[in-house]
Nucleic acid binder design. Structure first.
Lengths: 201, 201
DNA sequence: GTCTATATTGTGATAGAC
DNA sequence: GTCTATCACAATATAGAC
């Protein structure tokens, strides 16, 4: 199956280039070179730069999207849910650190692209809202708008990656290893911080 | 002073276009059109697209950068400092909501640009670190890595703006007004959340 | 200081040979 | 399926008239 192999190489190459330079900053030439093939082949497999990008974006978005539902629908307690979610999510991004900025940048540049992808997936954040609201009603956690809590969780998980070049330079004097250690330690620190805040005494 | 007026118009126009579309997505033609002048004039005042962008970026970065020092060097208590900082900062970004993504995107695309700008300003985050460490030693707040705390504060303040198109679509069904209200309410919510977490009982 | 015209290179995309 | 050659256009940038 040679054809599939080439198609895969193109997709792999396009993913690398697009993630690093964004849609506007990438060229078909660079993607072709990076895949060691001819530029025309790109158009043979995917008819346009936009179609190729859409394909890449859809795939990458799956990696990025936190599976909020799964974890918040499990029968674990709220604190364990939060611990699991932040640790798993930060761990996932640690293996794909460029993805958050890529996804956020491209959605900002072209919000329409999100609509297509989201429909394909079928998100149900309401389940997470309800789950949190129940804990408030039970008195396990303090009264808080579930959306505020969820945004806080996502913010503290994702932002250190999206803002890495900035934070590394300003707060860590550009020390790459120190920043990497910092990110790893957040796997535990973030949930600790959140739970401290919402646990009812 | 006609020359200055034209130069200002160019800078104004370039700022609008660059912030909205980023360096790669912007063209000199569009900036010229937006300023109602000829394309060649751009090169007369600023010799290249890169030079024009650098100028814009430097100016915008000042707006974006939290003046951590000022607030954390004041003689307010740590909790009031955090309240002041988050409220002032979120309020600033509310007036310039596109700036966070702009700054983060461009630093990611070209980390070198940050170095020049930071030197110009002379940041001293160590002062904030010390200030936090003192409160830990005094027993006012729980034991926490000052850098973790600062990143949490910045993350919860900035991320809802940088990730607005995404969060709005996924958590708010695209409701613009609802998301705007959500952002405004964070002026109080964020500091409450943080202080809840670090205050020692 | 501001314009028109143009140079030069790079871009996405297609035609057509093999 | 894969290549070479090429088109049509857009990009940054400059030259030169006024």
């Amino acid at each position: 199956m040679e054809s599939k192999s080439t198609e895969e190489r193109i997709l792999q190459s396009a993913t690398e280039v697009f993630i690093l330079k964004g849609y506007d900053g990438s060229t078909m030439q660079e993607i072709a070179d990076n895949a060691s093939i001819n530029k025309s082949l790109l158009h043979y497999y995917y008819r346009s730069k936009d179609k190729l990008f859409s394909r890449v974006f859809g795939m990458v978005f799956h990696l990025f999207l936190p599976r909020l539902n799964r974890i918040f629908e499990s029968d674990l307690g709220i604190f364990e849910q939060i611990e699991q979610f932040t640790e798993l999510y930060i761990d996932t991004i640690l293996k794909n650190p460029y993805i958050p900025m890529f996804v956020m940048r491209e959605i900002t540049n072209n919000p329409n692209r999100l609509a297509e992808v989201v429909k394909h997936i079928g998100l149900r954040p309401e389940k997470a809202f309800q789950s949190i609201q129940q804990e408030i009603d039970k008195g396990t956690i303090v009264d808080i708008d579930p959306r505020q809590l969820i945004v806080n969780i996502i913010a503290m998980s994702i932002f250190p990656f999206a803002g890495k070049p900035m934070l590394k330079a300003i707060l860590f004097e550009g020390d790459d290893k120190a920043y990497q250690d910092f990110l790893v330690s957040r796997k535990k620190e973030v949930s600790k911080f959140i739970i401290n805040s919402i646990r009812k005494q």
